[in-house]
Every structure is written in structure tokens, then in C-alpha cells.
């Protein structure tokens, strides 16, 4: 009974993760990208909570709370502040246009599905079928980093890769050991702060957060 419920809950969460990854790719405005990123954090926290309730691992409650605070609230807020302070242009500037990005994204999901197939067959875990989706989420975040111009979107892409990995861990093994999780959480937090500092410096040195502009200027 518990297994079936767990599986269903994780399935729903996995499809939500996939949906959010696509939503992140499809946004035109930077702020809505941020909103979806926050939503990803919340979904992650909810998944953790569900797994905690169903599997009865107590430390997962703490993990869920931390995820919610850190990834659902703190990181998006930090990024939002950066955007506001830097007066970043509100539009997302894609290098590749939307329909093509979507098409590549769908293909990526298919590829991940194909790659994960043999692994899933071997796996005995109840949640083995989320592996493909978790992998796809990682790749989609990478796609976002590749196809967007701004440094901010790259940071969001990076952070959502981390989210995807966390999701894989939750889905596959009911969460990593607490100590690892804490370590990673702090790493991410520190990284976000460092990114913030970087942005400030980049801005003051190059007058822009657009990577093409930065590259152009640093060549001179």
C-alpha cells in the first residue's frame, strides 16, 4: 500500500518537475523565470515531505523544511534582489528561438528516456521510473544555460541542476545522508552569495551582465 502511494506521489512530483523545467525554458520574462524557479523549490520540498510521511524517515522532515526555506524562498529572493539592484533588463534573451528550443527539449527528454531504459530495467527500487525524468531535468537545465544570453539565467540554470540532482536523490534513495545534504545546501547558499558578488563586480567592470558583451570586452 505504502509503496503504491509512494510511487504515485513520486510520479506526480516527477511530472511536475518536468513541467517546471519546460516552463523555465519557455518564459520570456526574467521575473517569471524566477517564479518558476521558486515553484521548483516548493515542489522539491513537497516531494521530500511526501516521501518523509510515507516512508517514515524522520530526518526527511527537516530536509523538507530546509529545502522549502532555502530553495523555495531564500535563493529566489536573493536572485530577485540582484535583478532589482542591477537593473537587469526584464526580458530573457534567448540565443536560439523558442520553438526550436522546445523541439530540442522534447528530443532531449526522448534521449534521456532511451538512455535510462536499461538502467531502469535493472533497478529494483519502486521509484526507478523517475530516473529518466530526473536526468531530463538536469539536461533541460543545462539547455537553459546554453541557450540563454544572461548570466542570471545561467545561475538559475545551475541552481536548477542542483534541484534536479536533489530530486533524483530523493526519488532514488529516499534522500542522501543528512550530513551530505547539509553540506550541499550550504555550498549552494555560499555559491549563490558568491554569484551575487561576482555579478556586482562584473557589472562594475563590464557595464553589463550579457555574456557576449563581457566576452567582447575582455578580449580588448
Amino acid at each position: 500500500m505504502g509503496d503504491v502511494m509512494l510511487q504515485e506521489a513520486i510520479s506526480v512530483a516527477a511530472s511536475l518537475m518536468l513541467l517546471i523545467s519546460f516552463a523555465l525554458l519557455a518564459q520570456h520574462r526574467l521575473l517569471s523565470v524566477l517564479h518558476w524557479f521558486a515553484a521548483q523549490g516548493v515542489v522539491l520540498a513537497l516531494t521530500t515531505l511526501l516521501v518523509a510521511v510515507i516512508s517514515g524517515h524522520n530526518e526527511l522532515y527537516f530536509s523538507a523544511l530546509m529545502t522549502l526555506l532555502l530553495k523555495g524562498a531564500l535563493l529566489p529572493w536573493l536572485l530577485w534582489r540582484i535583478i532589482r539592484k542591477m537593473h537587469v533588463h526584464r526580458e530573457v534573451e534567448p540565443l536560439v528561438n523558442m520553438p526550436v528550443t522546445m523541439f530540442i527539449a522534447l528530443t532531449l527528454v526522448l534521449v534521456c528516456f532511451y538512455v535510462a531504459l536499461p538502467i531502469e530495467r535493472m533497478s529494483q527500487l519502486v521509484t526507478h521510473n523517475t530516473l529518466a525524468i530526473a536526468m531530463a531535468t538536469v539536461f533541460l537545465s543545462m539547455l537553459m544555460m546554453i541557450t540563454r544570453k544572461k548570466a542570471i539565467t545561467q545561475v538559475i540554470g545551475f541552481l536548477s541542476i542542483e534541484n534536479a540532482l536533489f530530486f533524483t536523490a530523493i526519488g532514488a534513495t529516499h534522500g542522501m545522508p543528512m550530513i551530505v545534504e547539509l553540506g550541499v545546501a550550504f555550498d549552494v547558499l555560499i555559491a549563490a552569495i558568491i554569484f551575487g558578488l561576482f555579478f556586482t563586480h562584473m557589472r562594475s567592470t563590464f557595464d553589463s551582465l550579457d555574456l557576449d558583451v563581457i566576452q567582447e570586452k575582455s578580449k580588448r
Binding site: 510520479s11 516527477a14 519546460f22 522534447l106 527528454v109 528516456f113 531504459l117
Partner: peptide, 12 residues
Amino acid sequence: LGMLVHYILEVG
């Protein structure tokens, strides 16, 4: 996506 999810999560 619905179709992919069907194959990945529900058929598998």
C-alpha cells in the same frame, strides 16, 4: 509531454 510521461512513468 503528457505522452512522454505516459510512457516513462505509467507504462514502464
